[in-house]
Simulated assay, not measured.
Amino acid sequence: MIRALGAAMVVGASTVAGFRVASWYRRRPAELRALLQAVRLLQTEIEFSVTPLPQALTHVGKRTSAPASLLFLTAGEALEAPEVGPAEAFARGIAACEPKSALVARDFECLVEFGSTLGTSDRIHQSQQIEVTLARLSALEEEAREAQRRNERLWQYLGVLAGLLVVILLY
């Protein structure tokens, strides 16, 4: 009885671990999609509404989903302080959302580069920088979808099978 309960616990724990890793592969494309939407909204705020950057970042943060909302809201709040520049404010936003997201280092590098260009030029050049960022985020999203297709089921099965292997080896 105790052996069967222990075996079930081992299989259950390894299955949960496999599904957690698989959920990371599922979340990353969705988070990149949310970032794409947020950058597009920011582009609209800058180009058409001609909203000041702190207010534009806050508006975008309120209209997007996590982790993009956290990034843009934190950056907008940080930019309200007079001694903080746009690049530093965006870096603070990235630092706030980094532990809570499934994004990888390359995704954050793209966002850091985008943040370093915010508020450094006129609307036309800013729009060009936004287009470059949108293209890079789209490529990263496609890469994340491909990684999801390759690895999501693999980790689910691997979790279950690793648990079964441990149980078989222990019996």
Score class of each variant (00 low, 15 high):
E83I: 09
F114K: 01
G76F: 08
P54Y: 06
K100Q: 14
E31Y: 06
S69E: 10
V132N: 06
E113C: 06
V60S: 04
A75P: 09
E83S: 14
L35C: 11
V39P: 00
K100G: 15
R106Y: 05
E45R: 06
S69L: 09
T58H: 05
S14C: 15
L73G: 00
A22H: 04
I124M: 12
A22T: 03
A68S: 12
V11P: 00
S14P: 01
P67H: 06
A102P: 07
T58Y: 02
T117A: 14
T15C: 10
L103D: 03
A89H: 03
L70K: 07
F48L: 14
Q43V: 04
A89T: 07
C110N: 09
T120L: 12
P52S: 11
P82A: 10
P54W: 11
L32H: 11
R20F: 11
R123H: 13
E47T: 13
L32Q: 01
A91T: 08
A68V: 00
L41F: 05
I46S: 05
E88N: 12
T58M: 15
A13V: 11
Q129S: 12
G119S: 12
E47R: 14
P29R: 04
L36N: 09
L118E: 09
G18H: 02
C110S: 14
T74N: 06
V60D: 02
H125D: 11
Q126R: 05
H125W: 09
Q126C: 10
L134F: 07
E88I: 04
V16N: 01
F48Q: 11
A96S: 11
T15K: 03
G119R: 07
E113I: 00
R92M: 14
L41G: 07
L73S: 06
A17W: 04
C110L: 13
